[in-house]
Design a protein around this nucleic acid. Sequence first.
DNA 1: ACCTGAACACCGTTCAAGT
DNA 2: ACCTGAACACCGTTCAAGT
Lengths: 217, 217
Amino acid sequence: MTRMARRRILTREGIVAAGVAVADRSGIEGVSMRSVGKELGVEGMSLYHHVTNKDDLLDALAAWVFEQIELPPADAEWRSAMERRAQSARLVLRAHPWAIGMLESRPTPSLALLRHHDRVLGWLFDAGFSAASATHAFSAVDAFVYGFALSESTLPFQTEEGTEADFADAVAPDPAEYPNLARSLSDLLGAGSYSYADEFDVGLTFILDSVERSLTA
Amino acid sequence: MTRMARRRILTREGIVAAGVAVADRSGIEGVSMRSVGKELGVEGMSLYHHVTNKDDLLDALAAWVFEQIELPPADAEWRSAMERRAQSARLVLRAHPWAIGMLESRPTPSLALLRHHDRVLGWLFDAGFSAASATHAFSAVDAFVYGFALSESTLPFQTEEGTEADFADAVAPDPAEYPNLARSLSDLLGAGSYSYADEFDVGLTFILDSVERSLTA
DNA sequence: ACCTGAACACCGTTCAAGT
DNA sequence: ACCTGAACACCGTTCAAGT
């Protein structure tokens, strides 16, 4: 309609950026060839000149999110590096929750993913981990990070907003039927400062403490 | 067509069972009102007399999967009970990977979920955990279990089938570019008996060891 | 070379119509 | 009361047609 919509520039990068914008706004199910096209002022069918199909576009979205994760330098100390990477991954997945479950899913891993994994293993090898124990540490931390992001994204309340108390009021489990749930909620929220977000650091520390112990043992 | 298709019995349970069958066969994106209807020899529109809409059907599928998870008795010892529950959850999610990410996601938790959570907290309270430390243990284990199921479901090779070596041959990272990845793969697979599935027990032990230590400390 | 419009085989959902 | 057929507004994708 408007003369602005006429652009000669339709690139893969631009399409990915538009896809991220649509997904952030309407979730992954809101991403269609037509909706991403509209975001760029173009028909959905035009995208097929730059991406193979929708699956290719989703691959590109997953790779984009993965590249947002901060990766400490190769010579970093293993534990703080694992921590920084985990914290960054969690923030990225909280900002783009539609990406959880896409990250490692695609059959052809992106080059960024291979580089990323190689560096993580590097930290651990430098610290004296064997291949087996490095894999143990890596697998446990990643499963926890992804799972936490998954739990956080599907939680009925939003973290980081102090609405846990509102949530408790809304749910209010019958103490006769669910005594432990009721006790847990009243203890945690009665204390006044509970935040589910803190569970991330606790869980990560559980894992890294055991990993560290297994190294020095 | 056939006279068999005429049935007077179209129940919510039957619809859920048909939905599970379709999802197991074609994934969650294969579940449509029409496809589930066809599974029952009925038009898709007929389902609306027994489920509110597709979202309601998906809620019911999530609840069904959740109920498949084995829950040890209320008086079980906390650590072995947590372990059995985690192992069962993992097996259920491996059998129905389409359910990962649906389990805790729905705004109205099923009664089964509340009962389940209440019992888990009960084990921990009986062992002397505070509300805070019980929540720490619960959150960490669940994030790990869900995340591991997620990783496992998206892995390029199938676990429990010994195809890890085939996978390594297929990927074969360039040792010049990804030295740590190459070393890791050759060390693990050279030893001959690597199975990604074992990482589940290792990671779970990492977490439960730290939890146990925090209890007795 | 790049974008488009029509077409095809699908969706979820509504609703009037059948039994 | 329960099931259906047509209809609506969507999908992904193909392909001939436009520039």
